[in-house]
Design a protein around this nucleic acid. Structure first.
Lengths: 105, 105
DNA sequence: TTGTTAATTAACATAAATGATAAATAATAA
DNA sequence: TTATTATTTATCATTTATGTTAATTAACAA
C-alpha cells in the first residue's frame, strides 16, 4: 500500500478520525483523555492509537504512566500536498482555497 | 460517519486509491479500462467503483454499454480544505505549499 | 433472432477489522 | 510491600471487507 492510501485507511474510521481532529484542536493528549469516547474500552482505544501510529499519523512520548500522543505535522501536510497537486482539476478558481489560507492565519 | 471519514475510508484501499489517481490523471474512463489492474475480476472492480461512488468520490454516466466514471472535484477539494484548516499546525512556513500552488499552474 | 461485449447483482468463502474481557506491565501512592 | 492508575497485550467473538464464480441485464453486431 502506498503511504497515502495507508494514511487514508487509518483516517477512514470515525473513532480514529475524531481522535486525530481532537489532537489537532486541543493539542497533545494521553489515551485516557479519550476514554469516554463512544464508550470504548481501553484496549479498543489503545488499538486505534496503534493503527494511527503505525500509519505515521501520530507519535507518542512516554510521560510517567501516561502515553502522550500528538499528530505528526508531515502526515497532514502530505494529504494537503496530494490534494493540491490536483488543484487544477478540482478548483474552478482559487477563491475558496485563498479564503481558507487567509482565515487560517 | 462524518463525510470526510467516509471519504478517507473509501480512499484507504490501494486499488481504489489507484483508480482515483488514474481517473484524476487520465480523465474519465470506463470500468473496463481498469480490468488488468491487480488481476481483479470484473465484479471485484465493480464493487470498488460502487464504494467510491457511495462515498461521493466518483460519479458515473451511462454511455451505451459502458459506465464512464469521473472524479467529483468537490471530493478532492474537501480533503484539501480539511488539511488547509490545520495549516497553522503543520506548516512551519508556506514554502512547500506555495511551491505546490505555483507548480500546479 | 443469436451471439458478443460491458457491467452489475447474487451467493458464497475467506481475510481483516473491531470490540470485549482478562491478564500483564509499569509507574505512583499509601 | 500492597494497592491504584494508565496503558498495552493476549484471546476470542462478531462484523465488515474483499475476492471468486455464476447468473442477470442491457446494448450492439452478425
Amino acid at each position: 500500500m502506498t503511504q497515502l492510501a495507508h494514511t487514508f485507511s487509518a483516517l477512514g474510521n470515525q473513532t480514529r478520525f475524531a481522535i486525530v481532529e481532537r489532537l489537532l484542536n486541543e493539542g497533545d493528549l494521553p489515551v485516557g483523555a479519550f476514554l469516554t469516547m463512544d464508550n470504548l474500552s481501553p484496549p479498543a482505544l489503545s488499538r486505534h492509537f496503534k493503527v494511527l501510529r503505525e500509519a505515521g499519523i501520530i507519535e507518542r512520548r512516554v510521560d510517567k504512566q501516561q502515553r502522550i500522543y500528538s499528530v505528526r505535522p508531515q502526515a497532514v501536510q502530505q494529504i494537503c500536498e496530494w490534494s493540491i497537486s490536483y488543484r487544477k482539476f478540482w478548483s474552478a478558481g482559487l477563491d475558496r482555497l485563498e479564503q481558507a489560507l487567509s482565515e487560517a492565519d
